[in-house]
C-alpha cells in the first residue's frame, strides 16, 4: 500500500523541513519513501510544496502525484496547485490560523489545527510547521509521534540545536490537538 501526502505553504513556514522530517520518520520505521520538493527561485513568501509517498514495499509512485491520499496545508496561497491532485476522499490537515476560507473540496475529511496559536502557547513561535506535522502524524498514524521527534532531532543542523526542545514541544502539542488515528493511513491501525 502507498500513501501520498501533498504539502503546501509559503517560503519560511518550514514546509520543506516538515516534509523531510515525515519522510525520515517513515524511513526509520522501515517504510519506503519518495520525497519530491517543489519550489522556485523565490525564498520567503514564494510557493513551497512537496510530494511525499510512503509505502510498505517498492514504490510505484511517479514523481508527480495524481489522486493523492492526503494534504498538509500550511497556507492557502498555493492550495490551488494541490487540490486537483488529490483523490476522491482525501484527508486534509490544515493550519486553521491561516486557512480560513473554504477549501472547495467535496468528500474530504478536513482536520483544522490552529498551528500558529498552539505554537505560541508552547513557546515555540517558529514551530507552527512542526505543530501541524505532529497533528498530521497523530490523526493518520502514517508514522508515530516518537519517530517524528527522532527524525526532527536528526535533521536540525548543528547550528540550530537551540531549537530542538521548542520543536519537540511543537510536535507534541500538535499530536495532542487531534484525535489519534481518526483518519488512519494503514489498514489495521486502531486508536
Amino acid at each position: 500500500m502507498e500513501r501520498e501526502v501533498l504539502f503546501t505553504g509559503v517560503g519560511g513556514q518550514g514546509v520543506q523541513i516538515a516534509s523531510r522530517t515525515l519522510a525520515t520518520a517513515a524511513m526509520d520505521e522501515g517504510r519506503q519513501v519518495m520525497l519530491v520538493p517543489r519550489y522556485g527561485g523565490g525564498m520567503r513568501g514564494g510557493m513551497t510544496n512537496a510530494e511525499l509517498t510512503v509505502g510498505d514495499g517498492p514504490l510505484r509512485a511517479l514523481p508527480v502525484a495524481a489522486g493523492a491520499w492526503s494534504a498538509f496545508v500550511m497556507d492557502p496561497s498555493y492550495w490551488y496547485t494541490v487540490a486537483p491532485r488529490l483523490g476522491r476522499h482525501p484527508v486534509v490537515v490544515v493550519n486553521a490560523s491561516l486557512v480560513t476560507g473554504p477549501l472547495g473540496l467535496d468528500g474530504a475529511t478536513v482536520w483544522e489545527v490552529p498551528a500558529a496559536s498552539l505554537a505560541a502557547e508552547v513557546q515555540s513561535p517558529m514551530g507552527a510547521g512542526f505543530v501541524l506535522l505532529g497533528a498530521f502524524a497523530a490523526v493518520t498514524g502514517l508514522v508515530g509521534t516518537e519517530a517524528v521527534v527522532a527524525a526532527m532531532r536528526q535533521l536540525v543542523p548543528a547550528y540550530r540545536t537551540q531549537h530542538l526542545e521548542a520543536n519537540e514541544r511543537a510536535i507534541r502539542a500538535g499530536a495532542d490537538a487531534l484525535p489519534a488515528l481518526a483518519s488512519p493511513a494503514w489498514a489495521g491501525a486502531a486508536a
Binding site: 519522510a23 525520515t24 524511513m27 522501515g30 519506503q32 519513501v33 519518495m34 520525497l35 517498492p58 514504490l59 510505484r60 509512485a61 511517479l62 514523481p63
Partner: peptide, 12 residues
C-alpha cells in the same frame, strides 16, 4: 521511480 530495496538505505 521506486525507492526499492532494503531499509538500511539512507534517505538521500
Amino acid at each position: 521511480m521506486g525507492g526499492g530495496g532494503g531499509v538500511t538505505r539512507r534517505l538521500m
